[in-house]
Design a protein around this nucleic acid. Structure first.
Lengths: 349, 349
DNA sequence: AGCGTTGCAGCAAGCGCTTTCTACATACGG
DNA sequence: CCGTATGTAGAAAGCGCTTGCTGCAACGCT
C-alpha cells in the first residue's frame, strides 16, 4: 500500500495530528519535532493524499481555467499568463495550487460539464476566458452554475468575456466594440468606402461586438452597408481564406477586408494573393488581437492589440485574491490600434 | 450547507448506498428506485463531492497533460488532441474525466511540482508532451517520480518525448533526428554547402536530436561544419531573428539557414528580409514542425511536418486504455519533409 | 412443499486527512 | 509556593462517499 500520514507519524514517533500540522504549517510545532517529522516524510517518500485532504479541510487547491480553443495562441497566451500568477505560492497557506486549463472546444455542453467537474472538485477559483455563447438557454444555465460556484465560495473571474450580473463573478471585459470601431475608422480615414467584413461564428459575443463596432464606424461616416459585404465563418485561417474568396465573388470592387481576428486575416491575405491582388495596393487587410505572428506577415498586419498577457495576469491575481476586484466587479480592457503595412489608401476606382 | 448524498437519500427514501449506486451505475438498481433517486438529485440540485468520492473509491477522474509552453501552438495542438480523446466518456464507468493541462513553462521545478500535485490527486493518467530536459539530476528525479506514478497505477504516456526505460511509461517519440537529417539533406541536394543552424535551448532532447540530424546530413555529404554556423536560442520568433543577424555577422556567405522550429524560422525570415536578402534567391530557410501558420509565410516555409494531432490523439487513447500500447512500450513517430517556397538552389558565389 | 437462486436494498466499516478540544508540562506573576 | 498563562502534543470525531457483506423477498427447480 501507499504510505499514509499514520505511517509517517509512527516513524517520527508522533501523532498523525502533529504530522498534519507540520505539513500545513498552520500550528506551532517545536522545531525538533518538525525536523523529525520532515525526516520521516523524506525517508518514507510520503505524498499527501489530495482527495483526503480536500475532504477533511473542505477546500481544494485546484484552480480551473476554461478556454475555447487551446490550440489558438489567443487563449494560450491568456492561459499562460493566468497560470503564471496562480502557480506560485498562493494565498495564506503558501501552498502550491494546481492551475489547470480545460479546453471546451467552443462547445456549450463541454463548458457546462467542465464547470460541474470543477464544482465537484470544489475548485478554489475558476477563470473563464474568451467570448461567451449567445444562446439564451445556455446563458441561463451558465449564469446559474456560476452563481452556485460563487455562493459556494469559489472565486469566478471572466477574462475577455462580458459581465454576468448577479452571479458574483468578476469581469475583465475586452472592448471589442470600441476596438472594432477604431479599426474600421482607420480604414475609412484612408479613404476606403467599400469594406468587406469576415465575422466569426454567430452567437458569440466577441463576434457580435466586433461587428457592431465595425458597423458603428460605417454609420458614423454615413456609409451604407451592403449585406453582401459580411460573411460569417470560424476563427481560423482557413475560414478567412474561403470567406475572402466568397467576398471577392460577391463584390470584386471591395478595397478593404476586415477580419474577425488575425488568423482569419492571414487567410484573407493568402486568398487575395492567390487571386492576384496586392496588399495593400489593391486591397487593404486588417485583423484583430495582434497575436505574435501578425507582425511577421508580409506585409505586417494592421490590427488591434489586445493586452492578452496583462489581462490574464490580472485575472489570475484577482482569482487568487491577490488583487482588488475592480469597482462594481467590472472592468473594461481597451485595445490599441496598430497600424502596419497591410492597410493603405485604396486604389482609385 | 451544501447538499450531501444523505440528503438525497432521505428525500428519495432510500439509503445513501443506493444513491451512490444510482449515480455510479455500477450496481443493479430497480428502475423505479433509480427514477426516484434521480428526481431527488435534480430537485435538490445535488453535486457529488469529488474529493470524498475519490477518497472512498481510491481513484480519481483527473488526467494531467504537461506542456512546456501553452502559448505555443506546438503544444496547444497536441494538448487539444489529447484532451479530445480523454474528455469523452471514459473507461468502465462512462464517467466524465477532467483532462487538465499544466504549463511548466519549461521549468524543471514546475515540471516536478506538477507531477507531485497530480500524484497527490491520484490522477488516473498523465501525458508528458514535448522534449525533456537533459540534466542528469533532473532526469533522475523525473524518472523516479514517473516510476512511482506508474507503480501507483497511474498510466503515464510520453508524447514527443524520448522513452524513459524502467519507468513503466509508454513513449511515443518524434523522430527529430531523422527529420532533421532529411531536411538538411534536401538543402544539400539543392546545392547548399554553407548552412547556418539556429538551434533551440541547450539541454533539451529536441534541440539535440534535431541538431544531430542536421550534422549527420552534413557528415554524410562530407561537409565539414564550421562552429560559427551554429547558434543556440529559444524556441521563439524573436530568438530566430536575433540568431539570424548573429549568423549573418559571423559569415555573410551562408546560403541557407535551418531553424529549430517554425517560429524560429519565421524570425529568421524577418531578419533576412530586414537585411535586404531575398528568400530563397539569396538565402534558403527551413523550419520544423509545420505549424498551421507556416504555410502562410511568404514564401511559404519548407519544413518537416510532425503529426502533432495524430500523435496526441493516440497518446490520449493509450492513456485512457482505449488503445493498445506499442510493442515494447515505445513507438517512433516520423516526420514528413514538406518542400515549399522558402528553399531553393543557392545563388552562385 | 422444500430449498437453492436471483434481484435489490441497507448496514456499517472504512478511505486518509484536518481540527477541535483536552492534557500536560513548563514558565511566570504575586 | 500556588494559580494562571503559554506552548506543544495527542485523542478522537468527523468530512462525504464507496462497497463488501448481509438480509430478505420473490422466484424457479425437482
Amino acid at each position: 500500500m501507499t504510505v499514509t500520514l499514520a505511517d509517517v507519524a509512527a516513524r517520527a514517533q508522533v501523532s498523525p495530528a502533529t504530522v498534519s500540522r507540520v505539513l500545513n504549517g498552520n500550528y506551532p510545532v517545536a522545531a525538533s519535532t518538525r525536523e523529525r517529522v520532515l525526516k520521516a516524510v523524506d525517508e518514507l517518500d510520503y505524498v499527501l493524499n489530495g482527495p483526503a485532504s480536500a475532504l477533511a479541510a473542505a477546500t481544494s487547491d485546484l484552480v480551473g481555467i476554461l478556454v475555447n480553443d487551446i490550440a489558438d495562441p489567443f487563449f494560450g497566451i491568456m492561459a499562460s499568463a493566468i497560470q503564471a500568477e496562480i502557480g506560485g505560492p498562493g494565498g495564506r497557506a503558501g501552498g502550491e495550487r494546481l492551475a489547470v486549463v480545460c479546453n471546451t472546444g467552443g462547445s456549450p455542453e463541454r463548458e457546462l460539464t467542465y464547470l460541474t467537474l470543477l464544482q465537484r472538485q470544489r475548485a478554489a477559483a475558476v477563470v473563464l476566458t474568451g467570448g461567451a455563447i449567445e444562446d439564451t438557454a445556455h446563458k441561463t444555465a451558465m449564469d446559474t452554475k456560476v452563481r452556485k460556484l460563487t455562493e459556494a465560495g469559489t472565486r469566478v473571474v471572466l477574462c475577455g468575456r462580458p459581465p454576468a450580473p448577479e452571479t458574483g463573478a468578476i469581469a475583465l471585459t475586452f472592448d471589442n466594440r470600441g476596438g472594432g470601431q477604431e479599426l474600421t475608422e482607420h480604414l475609412i480615414g484612408l479613404g476606403h468606402r467599400r469594406l468587406g467584413y469576415i465575422a466569426g461564428p454567430e452567437e458569440r459575443t466577441t463576434t457580435r461586438h466586433r461587428l457592431e463596432g465595425h458597423r458603428a464606424a460605417l454609420a458614423v461616416h454615413g456609409i451604407e452597408e451592403d449585406p453582401r459585404w459580411t460573411v460569417h465563418g470560424r476563427y481560423d485561417r482557413r475560414s478567412g481564406y474561403e470567406a475572402t474568396l466568397e467576398l471577392l465573388r460577391r463584390d470584386p470592387s471591395l478595397t478593404a477586408v476586415v477580419a474577425a481576428n488575425d488568423s482569419v486575416a492571414l487567410g484573407a491575405c493568402a486568398a487575395l494573393r492567390d487571386s492576384g491582388l496586392r496588399i495593400p495596393e489593391d486591397v487593404s487587410v486588417a485583423g484583430f488581437d495582434d497575436l505574435p505572428f501578425s507582425i511577421d506577415a508580409v506585409p505586417s498586419l494592421t490590427t488591434v492589440r489586445l493586452p492578452l498577457g496583462e489581462a490574464g495576469a490580472r485575472a489570475g491575481r484577482i482569482a487568487m485574491g491577490r488583487e482588488e476586484a475592480p469597482p462594481g466587479g467590472i472592468a473594461s480592457v481597451r485595445g490599441e490600434l496598430m497600424v502596419r503595412g497591410s492597410s493603405g489608401v485604396p486604389r482609385v476606382s
